[in-house]
């Protein structure tokens, strides 16, 4: 299968800080999750792949085009949807007007066709009823959906979503998950998130980043499997554990290298994620 994104040796520095360090990856259709702690380089990677920020070095192609050239970048942008971490709006615009504005910037010049597309997208993100409402009067979750609508307008082949569920209440998050799952049908979605549940529920692939490097690349099941035999229960916090916390039952859940005879627990994606962060070497699952 031809990858939607193929990157090799991407590096980027902010002054003395290494935000991306020799990142190589391939993305194909479906939803790929990007996990990592704050400062891991997730947003920087997303911005580079979305052509919002040029890398210092390395090369990549998106949808067969090289964003390192003006023409290639233009071609990529014609088929790209990008939802930034902190989407901004013109607050006096209505939801319809704002998505229409983005559609014009996406070179949709036929007004009737564009308006049809804007209505379709607003329907898709569940904002049909409030499309005439000014953005400043919409809730945070609705604004986030306006931004997703703006990213989806024009039916992009590659969708980049930077922490779209942050700050949303559980119900809104569930609604957003449905939208992202729908968006992942027939296109490639790269989803950056802090929520391992989002990845477990939505993604067919997962990347874990830390310190500007990709620490893990594989399926959510493979990431979970990394923690098999490395999660155990104890009555006291185990000082040898990489991470440990008291659960609702009062027992401690520990992640790391268990002592002999430990009561092993079923691992979760979060356990695998914690262990992937801890590893020094880059591990890319086959």
């Amino acid at each position: 299968m031809t990858p939607t994104v193929s990157a090799s040796g991407l590096s980027l520095h902010y002054g003395g800080t290494r935000a991306l360090d020799d990142v190589s990856l391939r993305l194909t259709g479906g939803v790929t999750g990007l996990l990592g702690p704050n400062g891991a380089g997730k947003t920087t990677l997303l911005r580079v792949l979305a052509t919002a920020l040029p890398a210092d070095r390395g090369a990549f192609t998106v949808l067969g085009h090289d964003p390192g050239t003006a023409r290639g970048r233009q071609e990529v942008r014609r088929r790209l949807g990008y939802l930034p971490q902190t989407p901004g709006f013109h607050p006096d615009f209505t939801a319809f007007e704002f998505v229409d504005y983005v559609a014009i910037l996406k070179e949709m010049t036929d007004r009737a066709a564009r308006h049809r597309e804007v209505r379709r997208v607003l329907d898709e993100v569940g904002l049909a009823d409030v499309r005439g409402k000014r953005i400043r009067k919409l809730s945070g979750g609705m604004r986030q959906r306006v931004a997703l609508g703006a990213a989806l307008v024009g039916d992009p082949g590659f969708l980049v979503l930077d922490e779209p569920t942050v700050g949303l209440d559980p119900e809104q998050r569930m609604r957003f998950r449905e939208l992202i799952a729908g968006a992942g049908e027939g296109r490639t979605v790269l989803l950056s998130t802090h929520q391992t549940e989002d990845v477990a529920m939505l993604c067919h692939r997962v990347l874990v980043m830390a310190g500007g490097r990709v620490r893990f690349e594989g399926t959510p099941a493979e990431l979970t499997a990394r923690a098999a035999g490395r999660v155990w229960s104890s009555t006291e916090r185990d000082p040898g554990a990489k991470a440990g916390w008291r659960t609702g039952t009062g027992a401690f859940r520990n992640v790391g290298d268990p002592p002999d005879g430990a009561e092993l627990l079923e691992p979760t994606l979060e356990d695998g994620y914690l262990l992937a962060l801890d590893g020094d070497a880059v591990e890319v699952a086959a």
């Binding site: 979305a50 919002a52 233009q74 014609r78 930034p84 971490q85 989407p87 709006f89 014009i104 996406k106």
Partner: peptide, 14 residues
């Protein structure tokens, strides 16, 4: 000044 700058950062209109 453009509050929507980041939302429209990657549109094809140069």
């Amino acid at each position: 000044d453009d509050p929507a700058r980041h939302t429209t950062a990657t549109v094809p209109t140069p």
